[in-house]
Amino acid sequence: MLVDIHCHILPGVDDGAPDMETSRAMIRDAYEQGVRYIIATPHYRPEMFEPSMKKVIRVYHELRDYAEEVGIGLRLGCEYYRNEQMIRHLDKKLRPTMLGSRYVLTEFSTNDSFVTVRNYIYELITKGYRPIVAHVERYFCCQEPERIQELKKLGAQIQINADSVLGYEGHTIKKFCAGLMKDDLVDFIGSDAHNLEGRKMNLGKCAAYVRKKMGQDYAEEIFVDNPRRIWKSR
């Protein structure tokens, strides 16, 4: 049983699944790979991805019903792109956290400075939120393990993408992710799936790879136990 905490599976709300047919196919693919729970995390990025919550909730409920028929529990979250209004939006519940918990999947610019990343993480934590840094391997300022360690000491949790672990984003990123896992700096691996082709669901394939490289206990912690803490924290 795998849990995917980062997935752009809701249709027509961001650059993920373009329509309900694609979303349903992604659900079936996820089930075949052993995924049993998914947190849908549509983008929220001012001036780029600002889907209406009315539409997000409508398509979420429609897809959730289908997912339950297939055998997957679908829940709602959000991938927040860091912005100056972030805390205000969270406090006013203008966008969902992860399952309504205090966990917030937080995205940064690839070119953000480490000071920017650290400051946003610090502010979220001081306001009572639990930031999960989305696909940390993408950020140029976080390419040193010491930087990841500093974020974790602040209280952040770290997510990397399945495709990065598998090497689909290049050998350098694959090696970096392997190092993070060996140093026990990874809390979650998410699919970050967007469609059926270029950015498809590879969580099952990744889990098999991680079991081979890191052992069953480690894979269970990353793909099952840690995601369960989000559910339990609500």
Results as ranks from 00 to 15, higher is better:
Val117Asn: 03
Arg118Leu: 14
Tyr120Lys: 02
Ile121Glu: 04
Ile121Arg: 00
Tyr122His: 15
Glu123Ile: 15
Leu124Val: 13
Ile125Thr: 07
Ile125Pro: 08
Thr126Gly: 07
Arg130Pro: 07
Pro131Glu: 04
Ile132Ala: 09
Val133Gln: 05
His135Gly: 06
Val136Ser: 10
Glu137Val: 00
Arg138Gln: 09
Cys141Arg: 00
Cys142Tyr: 04
Cys142Trp: 03
Glu144Gln: 12
Arg147Val: 10
Ile148Cys: 08
Ile148Thr: 02
Ile148Gly: 03
Gln149Met: 14
Glu150Cys: 04
Leu151His: 04
Leu151Asn: 03
Lys152Phe: 02
Lys153Ala: 07
Leu154Glu: 11
Gly155Asp: 05
Gln157Gly: 05
Gln157Asp: 08
Gln157Tyr: 08
Gln159Tyr: 00
Gln159Trp: 01
Ala162Ser: 14
Ala162Phe: 02
Asp163Lys: 09
Asp163Asn: 13
Leu166Val: 00
Gly167Ser: 06
Gly167His: 08
Gly167Asn: 06
Tyr168Thr: 03
Gly170Trp: 01
Gly170Asp: 02
Gly170Asn: 04
His171Thr: 10
Thr172Phe: 10
Ile173Lys: 15
Phe176Met: 11
Cys177Ala: 02
Leu180Lys: 04
Met181Phe: 15
Lys182Cys: 05
Asp183Lys: 15
Asp183Gly: 08
Asp183Tyr: 14
Val186Gln: 05
Ile189Gln: 07
Ile189Cys: 07
Ile189Glu: 03
Ile189Met: 07
Gly190Cys: 07
Ser191Leu: 12
Asp192Ser: 10
His194Pro: 09
